[in-house]
Design a binder for these strands. Structure first.
Length: 535
RNA sequence: GCGCCUAUAGCUCAACGGAUAGAGCAACAGUCUUCGGAACUGUGGAUGCGGGUUCGAUUCCUGCUAGGCGCGCCA
């Protein structure tokens, strides 16, 4: 990659000009300056060295560079060294845009979606599902072996309450709405007798009582039906769905492992964690396990099964404390490979302009309705076949373009945005480029630069080759929104080019069109958004 | 009360400690005898308040104010 070459060259130049300074390649920061006139790459190394007047230091380095390389470098501002890439170099880079397989031989496990049985799929789970899938695609493109696991919330004491309510209320079949309603109702009317009965039901479930098991299974089935419908709409397929129930028989071992570091407190078994005031509870005073225990069992299982180098939990910020605790204890228990990374993405929550979503007040919008509405709106604008891809693309892009950690104000209109900084804008740009390419009758493009390039052509060339850098950064920072902003800027540059430069009959411009289309398609696919030939 | 996070333009969001803080929407003014107008160009407008570190701070530290999330027997 160009960046590596420049970095090496700068390193050599510094060593020659200042032999006394010991510099490592990673000390040299390279960035793309924001202002176009500062050109393609820039380094602040002369400002960092503190070995003299920055501009003079920079000047010495530049002289070295000019003597030993063909790089076009100049000193600017307080002491930046700016590099201008020649059109020929840019063209060459644009011909081989490849994502480097930096993840070869490494394994990533991504825990995402994870809806709760007996609860409808809310917008809250949208973030996890969509960001998780994007991270999945991004890591895979970098050569990592990626495993996705949908950690269903299908176990725990809440099932005691549900089974109690089902037993009281259900006449035959029931729906996920019934379950949600009954669960709320239970809490509203809850008496000590009911609590006791619920505990008893959960005990029956854990003991394998047939009736309890059957009812539980029915809850799972009813819920999965809705979840699968939504995953279908979203075009998301997750490799595994080892729900919490899968770890039921694996928890005693965890509690054994934790014997030495845990203690009894008010009848519950807890682990104290240095630096965190609240201990992690493994077993409640009534003997029931907690989801922390299941999360520990999960980490243990994943290590034995896949031995991942990176574990990503695409889970909301509301679980921050929980994961800090679980990660700390898991490392103590040796459930994490030495040197492996545990990442809780802590995505922000959707909320109303006026405040938070409150499930209990029933003011949380239902995801399925949102998806249907998005598709309907897209259909109004274009073809029916494209409507699903466009509508869903709008929703996904809207979610992904936000920084992962930022809260999102739920705005019905913005969510369905089809113009401006939106998924459909990118899809449109791709379809438009495809249309031109079709008209060119596949007459292929030799990428010969003859004469001066127009500003629009240059602007495109200056941007295309950066795609692999962006993908790497997105992976490193767990930030699909970087891919979004890159693609949006690329599409803007292309559309500007399109409006100002007639393409048909010009080989170079056709080549630029084909390359842009390629990058747009790859990028959209990373985001889980379909790139349509026509829309 | 304690812990974590956030505060950027009228609204919704960007910005590895760098150069003149970028977009989208909204508003206003324009472009198009051409390949898809879901397009393009232009104009106005912003770092909550006070200290500190730094050659340089939206970014790091600290105090305040406002909001979000969480705080052992839900997950």
């Amino acid at each position: 990659m160009i960046a590596d070459d420049i970095r090496q060259a700068v390193l050599k130049a510094v060593k020659t000009a200042f032999p006394e300074i010991n510099l490592k390649p990673e000390d040299i920061e390279l960035e793309h300056p924001t202002a176009q006139e500062h050109r393609d790459y820039s380094t602040n190394i002369a400002l960092k060295l503190k070995t003299g007047h920055p501009r003079e230091v920079a000047q010495k380095i530049v002289v070295q560079l000019q003597e030993t390389t063909s790089l076009e470098a100049s000193v600017a501002g307080p002491g930046f060294i700016n590099f201008t890439l020649s059109p020929a170099a840019l063209m060459e880079a644009a011909q081989k845009i490849e994502i480097a397989p930096i993840g070869k031989g490494k394994t990533v496990v991504i825990d995402y979606a994870a809806p709760n049985i007996a609860r409808r799929f809310g917008v809250g789970h949208l973030r996890s599902t969509i960001i998780g899938q994007a991270l999945y695609n991004i890591y895979q493109s970098l050569g990592y072996k990626v495993i996705g696991d949908n950690h269903l919330g299908d176990w725990g004491t809440q099932f005691g309450k549900l089974l109690y309510m089902i037993n009281e209320k259900a006449k035959g079949d029931f729906t996920i709405d019934d379950l949600e309603k009954w669960y709320v109702e239970f809490h509203r009317q809850s008496t000590p007798q009911m609590e006791a009965a619920a505990r008893f039901w959960f005990k029956r479930l854990e003991d394998g009582d047939k009736k309890a098991r059957n009812l539980w299974k029915k809850c799972v089935d009813v819920s999965m039906e809705e979840f699968n419908r939504i995953f279908d709409l979203l075009g998301v397929k997750i490799d595994f769905a080892y729900g919490e129930s899968f770890y039921e028989d694996k928890m005693p071992a965890v509690i054994m492992d934790a014997q030495k570091i845990s203690k009894l407190s008010d009848g519950a078994r807890v682990v104290e964690i240095p630096g965190i005031k609240i201990p992690l509870m493994l077993v409640k005073s009534d003997g029931a396990t907690t989801y922390a225990t299941r999360d520990l069992a999960t980490l243990k299982f994943r290590k034995e099964q896949w031995n991942p180098d990176i574990m990503i939990y695409e889970v909301g910020v509301d679980q921050e404390l929980h994961f800090r605790q679980v990660f700390a204890v898991a490392r103590q228990l040796g459930y994490v490979k030495q040197g492996a990374i545990l990442c809780h993405t802590r995505h922000g929550m959707y909320r109303w302009p006026s405040g938070r979503f409150r499930t209990r007040e029933g003011n949380t919008p239902k995801l399925e309705g949102i998806l249907q509405e998005a598709i309907a709106r897209a259909a109004k604008l274009g073809s029916q076949e494209a409507a699903q891809a466009v509508g869903i693309g709008a929703i996904k892009y809207f979610d992904l373009k936000h920084g992962v950690q930022s809260d999102i104000v739920f705005d019905w209109e913005k969510m369905f945005e089809l113009q401006g900084d939106s998924g459909p804008y990118l899809q449109y740009t791709f379809a438009r480029a495809q249309s031109v390419l079709r008209k060119s009758k596949g007459k292929n493009q030799k990428a010969k630069i003859t004469g001066e390039l127009t500003n629009e052509e240059l602007a495109l060339l200056r941007y295309l080759y950066r795609f692999p850098e962006v993908v790497e950064a997105a992976a490193r920072q767990y930030a699909p929104n970087l891919v979004c902003s890159y693609l949006f800027e690329l599409a803007k540059r292309y559309n500007n080019f399109y409006n100002n430069c007639p393409i048909l009959g010009n080989d170079l411009r056709l080549k630029l069109t084909a390359t842009t289309a390629d990058v747009l398609k790859n990028g959209l696919n990373l985001l889980g958004i379909e790139a349509l030939e026509r829309m």
